[in-house]
Design a binder for these strands. Structure first.
Length: 751
DNA sequence: TCAGCTCACACTTTTGAATAGC
DNA sequence: AGCTATTCAAAAGTGTGAGCTG
């Protein structure tokens, strides 16, 4: 029986380790779901786990599962942002996402209970910078941070519940605080991310019985920032977010108002100072300097008075008796403010115009979205920006560079907007505002490529210009997984008990398409393959076929962590060899029953969530022990991590041919763009189990998204309330889970 | 020097308790 | 007494801009 083991500590943050335990129903004692070390993984597992229940060759298919559909209710809004290049503010205290994820679920069994999870995974291995009006990859990504999952506060709830309302994840918060103890989702600034929503069926309170459906809405990808870089995004946010209403043109916190306030403030100060300084005219004032109180009162009194344009006393700053004070500066500031005001006014006028244009653009875009087309302005990582070889880009320049941005005035060379149009439009069932991911059981097909730009009012996709050279087709063939050799599939010794999110999504027996040329691969799909906007393989040469074992394989048996905080990986590139892991002392609040496992070599080597992952240089998945294992799982299952469970050809969304999971733009340079993807995961546990015994080196397959273990733990508890009690974040005011809970998935060890 | 981050600020919406009215 | 509607204040969510940091 599986249950989610959520430690109150999600609040604990990254420090939590080894918190994934297996609980045998008959044996209440906590058993590590997976041995801390790859080596002992199999040994430490109950036989039952080692011999997982046979997985049906065909995904457990309950018809209903295949029918599960999720729509992004505010898709149009997302597309507006995406067309500009969505930015999400992250702060230390945590910032909500805007737009938020508003979803509609259907196809669930009304009587079954489901858990909804939100996680956010890196889209690539690059760090970005806003230059020249666009986002450009400027280097390798930062070490991967602890993965956390936001659990919808309503979870677990019945299918009827989920389907009866709009599901919102607006309570989820993003932070850049790596030591965050609030359980917020930790992200790096200036990195690209893709939110994912997982629907996990909880057959009953006791077990994760059914399967898992994962949904990805490409238009929801974003770049994290600590301050907005693109003015258009700022405008969009202000115009769209009610909380930012005050910053609108007519708001009290608009630039005009703020300038006016500042002007008044300065005027008041100036007057005050002027008065004080003017007082030199009155010798008595010099002798008797007004007390602070008097000054304040004076200031207050003056505040209500109109600014004194010109001190009649003839006071000259340079002659002021208080040279150190800055009457002059203030005066200048005042004048400057006046001038600034004027310029601002003018600027505002211009800005208004510009704003109007933008707004119009937005409207147009919005309208155009009505015709399900939108562009994503995210740039593709520069070829050499990443230290890791990435899959070769078919025709990066042709595919994206030329993309005519809706706003020509704002060159975004690096960020060719992406056109998703055909994908969305092609689906009859899709409304302009809602996209329905197709659900495929075993294979993914690539979405139909956008029609030639001619059909699009505003051809945003440059690439689309030449259908013949359709980048989408090229993807499968020319783009190989961006897996770095160093991230090669874990050696045979690597058997991780860690369940990666990716692995969760993969069905053991699922036949995953190999990206290059597999049946049902994008290439196979007539122009179905849609290259995800941003994923441009930096280094084509380095690209390797998915199946091809990555060059340097990283044995799971890494040097014992011990007290040392750095690891050297001989097989990995020098730049990636030295990994520093902050010694994070476990929070006192952290209750890790199996903490002892940490002592074990592997565990030591891979403290699950306490350490940063040098993902930047290394594709996440592979270096993570869990990832290793995940790969092995997948391999054993004959699946590529990237090849998430493919939707059964479901038909749920005809317009969206099933997309191979590998298509998810992570390290796959040219993963076909998928508007949405549904992954069906019939049986989680079996899958994991199956992988354990596998001794054969996993192929160098990597999940499109970095894989990380979900902290889904088996729990014998007979009552949902018990196991899930831990899922909920403890709130200060005694609200159990008013705003959802977070699940730390960082079992992923060090990497 | 500069890009990026943090923080305080003013404004807004949201939320929940208190109060009034029926 | 119980319920509903309204009011109010506190909390929380916004972007901004100055200042700090590396």
């Amino acid at each position: 029986m599986l249950s989610v083991e959520m430690f109150p500590g999600l609040a604990l943050g990254p420090q939590r380790i080894g918190d994934c335990f297996y609980r045998d129903q008959e044996a209440p004692a906590h058993l590590p779901l997976f041995p801390p070390t790859c080596d002992v993984s199999a040994a430490g597992l109950p036989p039952r786990l080692l011999a997982p229940p046979p997985v049906p060759s065909e995904p457990t298919s309950k018809a209903q599962k295949d029918e599960v559909k999720m729509e992004l209710e505010n898709s149009s809004l997302w597309k507006q942002f995406s067309s500009v290049g969505t930015e999400m503010i992250i702060t230390k205290k945590g910032r909500r996402m805007f737009p938020g994820l508003r979803l509609k679920l259907s196809g669930l069994n009304p009587s079954l209970r489901y858990i909804l999870l939100l996680d956010i995974v890196p889209l690539d291995n690059s760090r970005y910078r806003f230059q020249g009006g666009g986002w450009q990859a400027v280097g390798s990504a930062e070490a991967r941070l602890p993965d956390r999952v936001f659990i919808h506060p309503d979870s677990p709830a019945t299918g009827a519940h989920w389907q009866s309302r709009t599901i919102s994840f607006h309570y989820a918060k993003l932070t850049n605080n790596t030591l965050d103890t609030q359980g917020h989702i930790i992200l790096h600034s200036l990195h690209r991310y893709q939110p994912r929503v997982h629907v996990i069926e909880a057959r009953d309170v006791l077990r994760w019985g059914g399967g898992q459906h994962s949904f990805v809405f490409p238009e929801t990808q974003f770049i994290t920032v600590t301050a907005y870089q693109n003015n258009k995004i700022t405008e969009l946010k202000i115009n769209s977010n009610p909380f930012a209403k005050g910053f609108r043109e007519d708001g009290m916190n608009s630039k005009k108002q703020r300038d006016a306030r500042q002007k008044r403030k300065i005027a008041v100060l100036t007057e005050t100072l002027d008065i004080e300084n003017c007082d030199p005219c009155d010798s008595t004032e010099l002798l008797q300097q007004p007390s602070d109180t008097n000054t304040d009162l004076q200031a207050l009194a003056l505040a209500s008075l109109p600014p004194l344009p010109d001190p009649s006393c003839g006071f000259r700053p340079e002659e002021a008796s208080y040279p150190d004070t800055q009457p002059l500066d203030l005066g200048q500031a005042f004048m400057a403010s006046q001038m600034t005001d004027i310029s601002i006014t003018m600027a505002n006028g211009m800005q208004d115009t510009a704003g109007s244009e933008v707004a119009n653009n937005m409207i147009e875009r919005s309208d155009s979205m009505a015709e399900p087309a939108f562009t994503s302005s995210f740039p593709a990582p520069p070829p050499s920006s990443s230290s890791f070889p990435s899959a070769p880009l078919p025709q990066p320049s042709s595919s994206f560079s030329s993309l005519p941005s809706s706003d020509t005035s704002d060159p975004q060379p690096s960020i060719p907007p992406i056109d998703y149009p055909s994908l969305l439009s092609s689906s009859p069932s899709l409304s302009a505002a809602a996209t329905t991911p197709s659900l495929q059981q075993t294979s993914f097909t690539f979405p139909t490529p956008p029609p030639s730009n001619s059909s699009s009012p505003q051809p945003l996709l440059p690439s689309s210009s030449s259908p013949s050279s359709n980048p989408y087709h090229a993807i499968p063939e020319t783009i190989s997984p961006q897996t770095d050799a160093s991230f090669a599939a874990p050696s045979s010794t690597c058997h991780s008990g860690q369940m990666s999110a990716q692995s969760l999504l993969i069905q053991p027996n699922q036949t995953l398409q190999q990206e290059p040329g597999g049946n049902g691969s994008p290439s196979d799909q007539s122009s179905a393959a849609f290259i995800y906007p941003n994923v441009l393989p930096p280094n084509p040469d380095s690209a390797q076929p998915l199946n091809q074992p990555a060059a340097p394989t990283l044995p799971c048996s890494l040097p014992a962590h011990g007290a040392s905080t750095s690891f050297t990986f001989p097989s990995v590139p020098p730049h990636a060899q030295n990994l520093s892991f902050p010694n994070v002392s476990p929070s006192p609040a952290l209750h890790l029953q199996n903490l002892s496992h940490q002592a074990q070599p592997l565990t030591a080597a891979f403290p699950p969530s306490s350490f940063a992952h040098p993902s930047s240089s290394l594709p996440h998945p592979s270096f993570q022990p869990s990832a290793c294992l995940a790969s092995s799982f997948q391999q054993s299952a004959g699946t590529h991590p990237q090849n998430l469970p493919n939707p059964s050809s479901s038909s749920s969304t005809p317009s969206y041919p099933p997309v191979e999971i590998g298509a998810i733009p992570q390290f796959n340079p040219a993963p076909p763009y998928r508007p949405e993807m549904v992954l069906h995961h019939p049986s989680l546990l079996p899958q994991l189990d199956s992988s354990l015994p596998s001794s054969t080196p996993p192929p160098s397959l990597y999940p499109a998204f970095p894989s990380y273990p979900l902290r889904l733990c088996q729990d014998p508890h007979s009552s949902l309330s018990i196991p899930f009690r831990h899922l909920y974040r403890q709130h200060q005011h005694g609200h159990p889970h008013p705003q959802g809970s977070y699940l730390d998935m960082s079992t992923r060890a060090v990497f």
